[in-house]
Amino acid sequence: MKKAATIRDVAAHAGVSVSVVSRVLNGTGPVAPVKRAQVLDAIEELAYRPRAAARELSQGRSETIGLLLADLTNPFFARLADRVVAEARSRDLQILLMTTQEDPHLEGQALDTLLDRSVGGMIGTPTGHNTARWEKLAALDIPVVFVDRAVRELDSVDVVSIENVDSAAAATRHLLERGHTRIGIVSGPLDTTTGVERVQGYEQALREHGVERDDRLVRPAPFRGDRGAEVVAQMLALDDPPTGLVVANTAQVRVVLRMLAQARIAIPDDLSLVVFDDNPWTELIRPPLTAVRQPIDMLALHSVELVHARMRQKLPPAPRRVRVAAEFVERSSTARI
């Protein structure tokens, strides 16, 4: 078996001192750009494991986990970040937080930055792009856990998410059982796993009740911007508009509610409404909103536990898929036809 590279091997290969390698790995001092590049190239060529370096250099200092989330203006991700930090702190781990703003270019830059900082592990909500960069982390033996979403091409990565199919099916079924057959859904983009799986759950519930899917009522929307309002307005302008609506895109809930209020659409008299996710304000507005409550505490707990166990090499190599059940909370925003 080939002997694992050491920090001294990296220094020799890069033509620098061990202290320079240490500064690059830990970000503890200035390093000339040329030397930094030489060190990073040597790390990659020798398949040197940065997390092993952290143990070698820190001698008991807290390890660092990179946390790369999609959009902190989305309350779901803001609360997830808070809970991940709390779970990490309880294990004497540090968190280096970055955001992609749902932009693949920014995601690529952030991944490069986190790689330069030599994080011991990664928790991320991927945009669905930058597959090669995520693979590079794995090639350097840096554990990665995807939370909320996954990348289909990276089936070797651990994933923690809610039961998206079941949750969307429950939301749709709730409306069907109240006599609604014209039900719209606003999903996330269909190049994301959450977008695809929630539409699958919606379709599953329709099939169970013998209702044919109408493509005009299945409308994906980006996670940023106001597109959710536009697609709901288009659905309501149909000759046979929906009487029920599932907003399965958490980032678009407020946008849709604002549009419905401006259009004087009475909930639930004109339109029954179910939303993902359950924010503190969803039960304070009138009427209180029926919601799929995502178990953010459990998502954070499992994500940190998984990446920490991987960092300590406590798990077999086979990828883990952790799916946490969401809670359906019935309030007053839905009514019988």
Rank of each mutant, 00 (worst) to 15 (best):
V218H: 06
R219L: 04
R219F: 01
A221L: 04
P222S: 05
P222H: 02
F223N: 14
R224G: 12
R224Y: 00
R224W: 00
G225D: 09
D226G: 02
A229R: 06
E230A: 11
E230Q: 10
V231N: 00
V231I: 12
V232G: 10
A233T: 12
Q234P: 07
Q234A: 14
Q234F: 06
M235E: 07
A237T: 08
L238Y: 05
D239N: 04
D240V: 05
T243R: 01
T243M: 05
G244I: 07
L245T: 11
V247N: 09
V247C: 09
A248L: 04
A248P: 10
T250I: 01
T250W: 00
A251C: 02
A251D: 10
V253Q: 00
R254F: 03
R254V: 01
V255E: 02
V255T: 15
V256C: 05
L257C: 02
R258G: 14
R258D: 15
M259C: 05
Q262K: 13
A263T: 08
A263V: 05
R264P: 00
R264L: 07
I265E: 08
I265R: 11
A266E: 14
A266F: 04
D269N: 13
D269F: 03
D269M: 09
D270N: 13
L271E: 13
L271N: 10
L271Y: 10
L273T: 08
D277N: 15
D277P: 01
D278M: 03
N279Q: 15
N279T: 14
N279W: 15
W281L: 07
W281A: 06
W281P: 07
I285L: 03
P287I: 06
P287N: 02
P288H: 00
A291M: 03
V292Y: 04
V292G: 03
P295E: 13
I296F: 04
I296C: 05
I296A: 02
D297V: 14
D297Y: 06
D297S: 14
L299W: 08
A300T: 13
A300P: 15
A300L: 08
H302M: 10
S303T: 14
H308Q: 13
A309Y: 02
A309K: 10
M311A: 06
R312P: 14
R312K: 13
Q313N: 14
K314W: 05
K314R: 14
P316F: 02
P316Q: 10
P317L: 09
P317M: 03
P319W: 07
P319C: 12
P319N: 12
R320W: 13
V322S: 07
R323Q: 11
V324G: 06
V324I: 13
V324K: 00
V324D: 04
A325C: 02
A326F: 01
A326P: 04
A326C: 01
E330V: 10
E330C: 02
E330I: 09
E330D: 06
S332K: 12
S333V: 15
S333K: 10
S333E: 15
S333N: 15
T334L: 13
